[in-house]
Design a protein around this nucleic acid. Structure first.
Length: 591
DNA sequence: ATACATACC
DNA sequence: CACTGGTATGTAT
């Protein structure tokens, strides 16, 4: 489908090979401050690689040490097993933002399109043929593909589609985890145990449901843990499925030639380091794990090591409240003290707005700046009170500004508030602190610090967070080592103990599922509620039903969210209602 | 505890 | 001409 288009544009303006793409990017960017900074960073990485290489060389000359280390590795390999008793699926919407926009502008479907303004957020596959990628600056994309069409971001729209997407998926795992609007990880074990359905068929059906409800395609990967499922979902993207069978052999085969860069958590820099040391595939890591053991910190080592052996988290992690709220803006460079202060005021206001809308307060503030040479610096400060007030934040922000002693132009300024707590709990607490102070006074011990800060770690953690904290601690204790990344943060415990995540499958869902199984071939099954709709080819009837259904479903989602705090394994805030404007965009069958 | 680095979407 | 924004977490000091 893309081929002819490629030739058409390719002959005119397109870019053919990887080398040519690199060349265009290089030409477009060379000489810029950004480019210079990147070069510097690259040099730093190379130096780091050199240092590590030297360590490795000395390691390789020490036979005793080699023997010891290899033994440690062998023991590690013996200790774990690739746990295959769970079935995970990772669903990922294809080129999500662009796909959403194209719903409204189908005439652009076969043209190169990108969502974003200064930076490409997502590009469609036509544009990708030209080398256009996510996170690429707009002007580079334009050089690569002069005919590219940019569409500004409409976040609310994507949220609404995401909402439908998640609603469908929650039927199969109520506790799903997601790292963005367009992807989700489901633990299908319970569902499949109950339905005895073939995972591949199930997931194809879910993909069909998604297509039906959103008019958009999703790719899916299936595997015995979160990481494998995610990796698998990329294999047949877009609009495809890949299943990694539930066996250790299948997992190891799947990973064998996989570039390490694909492992979530291994990014650009780590890839550079690893490739500098001649580690390119997961197999390299497995074969020469002892070398990595010598040069990386334990956490980093464990993470890479276990990932390459296919060992990753195979249970849902408890939902945790967010740890920080931040706001940062890029602007054309400013260099006077006055301008700096004005920016702090502005960002403080934005941050306060955000905090207030989330009903959060915080007592640790960080000021972040980026110089016009793209160097990033930060200063942080422990406040003596909780706040979410713009004026207060601005005062602290300016203090940090002073401490930082800025004497060069900056292109970005941001403020981050951490050590968050709920506004209401803090209010409650200041009352109790007030009473406490009265007591102190009456006992002759004047408390000169009326701030809440002192009692924070007690009251808030105990009343609110202690459950999460406890379970985390327990996990950590029973783990031999802690892995670092979110994707695999606490594996070992689970490897040993096996099954531990519960089904959140409701009776109702079972019934819905059975209804699905008994579907009449002629009638239409609503992808949201699973009910059969006799629409007799009348699209309006269908549309109305699905509109209503989505709205209702959202109410249900919202309620269960309220009543069950555990529910929210997803980090997505599900909007309580689909706003009518966006919903209109997704009235399918209308055209 | 603070600053900086890396990663993800 | 031109390289985001929000959040988490790891490493170094």
């Amino acid at each position: 489908m893309n081929e002819p288009i490629f030739h058409y544009y390719g002959n005119k303006a397109g870019v053919e090979g990887a080398d040519q793409i690199k060349q265009v990017i290089d030409d477009a960017t060379r000489g810029s401050e950004y480019y210079k900074r990147q070069q510097e960073k690259r040099q730093q990485v190379l130096q780091k690689v050199n240092k590590m290489q030297m360590e490795l060389d000395s390691y390789k000359n020490n036979e005793q040490k080699i023997k010891e280390t290899k033994e440690i590795i062998q023991n590690k390999v013996k200790e774990f097993q690739i746990n295959t008793d769970r079935i995970w699926a990772h669903f990922d919407m294809d080129m999500f933002y662009v796909a959403c926009e194209l719903l409204d502008k189908p005439e652009l479907k076969d043209k190169p399109v990108a969502v974003g303004q200064t930076i490409v957020s997502t590009a469609n596959y036509v544009a990708r043929k030209f080398g256009v990628r996510s996170a690429m600056p707009g002007f580079v994309a334009k050089k690569l593909c002069p005919e590219i069409i940019f569409i500004p971001c409409h976040f609310e729209k994507y949220k609404s589609v995401s909402n439908i997407f998640m609603t469908i998926l929650k039927k199969y795992d109520d506790n799903l985890e997601s790292m963005g609007l367009d992807e989700a990880n489901l633990d299908l074990t319970e569902y499949i145990n109950n339905s005895q359905e073939d995972p591949a068929i199930l997931c194809e059906n879910i993909r069909k449901d998604i297509l039906l409800a959103t008019q958009l395609t999703a790719s899916c990967g299936v595997g015995p843990n979160k990481m494998i499922a995610k990796l698998a979902s990329e294999i047949n993207k877009p609009n495809g499925l890949h299943v990694v069978e539930q066996s250790a052999t299948a997992v190891l085969n799947f990973l064998e030639k996989l570039p390490i860069r694909k492992i979530p958590g291994i990014g650009n820099i780590t890839e550079q380091i690893l490739s500098g040391l001649n580690f390119n595939t997961c197999k390299d890591v497995r074969d020469r794990a002892d070398e990595l053991y010598v040069i990386f910190t334990p956490k980093t080592f464990e993470y890479i090591f276990y990932s390459c052996w296919g060992v990753a988290r195979n249970y849902h992690v408890e939902f945790e409240d967010q740890h920080s709220i931040s706001c940062q803006r890029t602007f054309s460079s400013i260099s006077t003290q006055r301008e700096f202060e004005d920016k702090v005021d502005y960002i403080a206001e934005k941050l306060a707005e955000e905090m207030q809308s989330e009903e959060k307060v915080g007592n640790h503030l960080t000021l972040i700046i980026k110089t016009s040479k793209f160097e990033i610096r930060s200063k942080s400060l422990q406040l003596n009170q909780y706040t979410n007030q713009a004026k207060q934040i601005a005062i602290y922000g300016k203090q940090l500004l002073k401490i930082m002693q800025l004497d060069e132009p900056i292109r970005l300024l941001g403020l981050k508030m951490s050590s968050l707590a709920n506004e209401k709990q803090i209010q409650k607490q200041s009352i109790s602190t007030y009473f406490k102070r009265q007591i102190d006074k009456s006992s002759g011990q004047e408390n000169l610090v009326p701030s809440i800060k002192g009692s924070k770690s007690h009251q808030i953690t105990e009343e609110n967070d202690s459950f999460n904290k406890m379970s985390l601690q327990q996990q950590e204790q029973s783990k031999p080592d802690i892995l670092s990344d979110d994707e695999a943060s606490s594996i070992s415990n689970q490897i040993l103990s096996g099954v531990n995540s519960k089904s959140h499958q409701s009776q109702q869902q079972q019934q819905q599922y059975q209804q699905k199984q008994q579907a009449q071939p002629k009638s239409f099954r609503c992808p949201i509620c699973n009910k059969e709709i006799d629409c007799k080819g009348n699209n309006t009837v269908l549309n109305k039903h699905i509109d209503r259904c989505i709205t209702q479903q959202n109410v249900i989602v919202e309620q269960s969210d309220e009543s069950n705090r555990n529910f929210s394994g997803s980090k997505i805030k599900v909007p309580s209602k689909i706003d009518s404007k966006a919903q209109k965009s997704f009235n399918f069958f209308k055209k």
